[in-house]
Design a binder for these strands. Structure first.
Length: 413
RNA sequence: CGGGGUGUAGUGCAACGGUAGCACGAAUCGUUUGGGACGAUUUAGUCCGAGUUCGAAUCUCGGCACCCCGACCA
């Protein structure tokens, strides 16, 4: 991608409304734009990161036999009445259509997937099953905050599992939890992310949250100083000692909930009469589980845990581009060498953002490059060309090094 | 939803009730060119509606929007 053509505008002024680092950096570097409170546009840079995160999640869901599908956002009122949540779920957006017919905008999809599963699941032979989607959710939060960390419209991966019996379900649930840990690790927040025991709300006694430690977080989690088990606040209130090792010393940390998994059991199978015929010819309710990850929130959390005073430092796995190629001094020599390098890198399928702008000074290009945070920076200039070289600098490191142009690709591997 | 705050140019900020200004951005020209260059010229604004006043960005009222604290958060 030529930076001169990229749909973005970096801004050196701090965003006035930004109270979180991720909000400020993502807005300033041109990744996202706020449309209104809790609603954001993803610009090309931000969308590329979002897609990378999406692909990591998709790959891991498929590894635990999740089948991807797509459910609608516009829901009939009746489905939500069936579970009672039309009246009890405060965050549900409701709207009226033609003839005053009432609809909900999907804030979650149990009400849709359960009746859909009913059309597919009849026998124990049809189970187990897991389906997931990566789709937009609408939640009428009383208050949106912290940039993209808490929004009213966001893209979520939600998976739903269907099992015949508790034992198999429990095994799968643990497998899903491991898969979540893997996802967060691959996204570069593995070290700061804890699986925490949490309340299951109206669904179940307990659920499991995945909490990433950062000051931008709005949750408090408690990490056992002995065994590193983490629990969240409402669990701490009911069990003052660690449920695993009985230690009563906890470290309190602010954290962002990046994922949450629930054992729904028959909570939704019952109202929608989702059942299967077992081997013994008896109809039994299907056991359901649900597993969610908010993609935008995850993106924001990655920024919250990967930045310095100059800007974002993307983990390679999610970076919008792998390489930021910068040409400084616009002499014919430099232009020619940079353009050749640009096409050579592309031939190797290396995603590269090429700062071909001729109107920007070196300093401004560097500053913007640091702000955008692509993992590797390549600089081509008269100075480097004298050595037949290109300067290679990793965003996360202080020092740059010169590499012969012909060895550039090798140096990037 | 309760409490608090703020709305001025694309962005960030100033302006006692008295001619709306600065920086960045953007544009043109010239000089520059390895850590946010310099000069010249140019561009663009008081959230909306009432009221008070000779005069309102400034005061009052209403609306709208955004931010913060709280409550809420399958």
């Amino acid at each position: 991608m030529l930076q001169s053509k990229l749909f973005y505008k970096a801004n050196r002024n701090k965003s006035a409304d930004a109270d979180s680092v991720s909000h400020d950096l993502l807005v300033r570097a041109g990744y996202v734009d706020q449309l209104m409170a809790g609603v954001y546009s993803f610009m090309p840079l931000g969308f590329r990161v979002l897609k990378n995160i999406e692909n990591i999640i998709r790959k891991n869901m498929e590894l635990i036999d999740g089948q991807e599908l797509l459910l609608p956002s516009l829901h009939p009122k009746e489905n939500w009445q069936k579970t009672g949540r039309w009246d009890t779920l405060d965050i549900l957006f409701k709207l009226k259509g033609a003839g005053d017919k009432e609809y909900a905008l999907g804030s979650t999809h149990e009400e849709i997937i359960a009746p859909l599963a009913k059309k597919v699941i009849f026998s124990y032979r049809d189970l187990p099953l897991s389906v997931f989607q990566i789709q937009t959710k609408f939640r009428n939060e009383l208050r949106a905050k912290s940039g993209i960390l808490r929004t009213r419209e966001f893209i979520m991966k939600d998976m739903y599992s269907f099992f015949t019996n508790q034992d198999d379900f429990d095994i799968y649930y643990e497998k899903a939890a491991k898969s979540y840990e893997k996802i967060f690790k691959e996204c570069g927040i593995g070290k700061v992310t804890y699986r925490t025991l949490a309340s299951g709300g109206t669904f179940s006694k307990y659920s499991d949250e995945f909490q990433a430690i950062t000051d931008a977080g709005e949750d408090l989690i408690y990490i056992c100083t002995k065994c590193s088990l983490a629990i969240n606040k409402e669990i701490k209130e009911e069990t003052p000692v660690c449920t695993k090792c009985k230690n009563d010393q906890f470290e309190e940390k602010k954290a962002v909930e990046v994922g949450n998994i629930f054992k729904l059991g028959t909570k939704f199978s019952t109202p929608f009469d989702l059942k299967f015929t077992d081997r013994d010819a008896v109809d039994k309710p299907v056991l359901m589980g649900c597993y969610g990850i908010g993609l935008g929130r995850l993106l924001g959390t990655i920024v919250e845990t990967n930045y310095d005073d100059k800007g974002i430092i993307w983990p390679k796995s999610v970076a919008p581009f792998q390489v930021h190629l910068i040409q400084i001094e616009n002499t014919p020599n430099v232009k020619k060498a940079a353009q050749k390098l640009y096409t050579d890198l592309q031939k190797e399928n290396i995603e590269v953002l090429y700062d071909d702008r001729q109107t920007k000074m070196a300093g401004e290009k560097f500053a913007e490059s640091d702000l955008i945070g692509i993992p590797v920076r390549l600089v081509v200039s008269e100075r480097t060309l004298k050595e037949n070289s290109v300067e290679v600098k990793e965003r996360a490191k202080e020092k740059a090094r010169l590499v012969k142009i012909k060895d550039t690709i090798k140096a990037l591997k």
